[in-house]
Design a protein around this nucleic acid. Structure first.
Lengths: 102, 102
DNA sequence: CGGACGATTCAAATATGACTCAACTGTCGT
DNA sequence: ACGACAGTTGAGTCATATTTGAATCGTCCG
């Protein structure tokens, strides 16, 4: 997992299934079975997308009995924020809230 | 241009050429000929990628004589920030700088 | 006007990523 | 140990985004 580029990171997030998973994980740790209920794809396909998120280092996993729990990696939000084009330029000190509500 | 989803917006940014263009435009308005020097693809291909950014509403254009100037749309940064997964969750009031430097 | 320049469009070829299905691993309950 | 459950893996198929080359449009200059 050789430190991904900004583009590779954005590509990992720029998919309907993976975006939904990341968004759900932002609420906290979830087992695959929970994620499954939110995406309407086959278990196999979900697994495929989860592997991409794992490989990107955006999520971490922990087995709990039969289940596997997924969590957002601690630095996931920060790495994604840093991956946005024009970050070194705008930044200054605007809050994300300001950007979101602009 | 029917209001794009978060994923569609991220997909527009998640490409090496388009990311580079957006990043460069964050510095200010640039003609195609300037962008051309920063991407190492054929003029035809650059035009293809620029059209995708236009269709996404992330950039605007203005003809100036023989040249065409591209600018970041006023709300581009904000729309991209809003497109990040987990935005409604984290947000609070952390500065982008905090996220970037975490 | 005619040619050169900057940039875009079109149609066709290619490459990449998403998706499917069958087989597999690890864990629990009996 | 057996079978069911939760999830993953691997090898293919298919769709779509990317890429290419030829032709085109608008603008400037001699």
């Amino acid at each position: 997992m050789t430190q991904l580029s900004s583009v590779e990171l954005l590509q990992a997030a720029a998919d309907p299934v993976r975006w939904t998973v990341l968004d759900r994980l932002a609420h906290g740790t979830r087992c695959v079975c929970d994620l499954q209920e939110h995406v309407d794809v086959s278990p196999t396909l979900l697994s495929y997308h989860l592997r991409i998120l794992r490989d990107a280092g955006l999520v971490t996993t922990a087995r709990r009995g039969r289940w596997v729990d997924y969590s957002l990696a601690p630095d996931a939000q920060a790495r994604l924020a840093r991956a946005m084009p024009g970050v070194g330029v705008t930044a200054g000190d605007r809050t994300t809230l300001e950007l979101v509500e602009a």
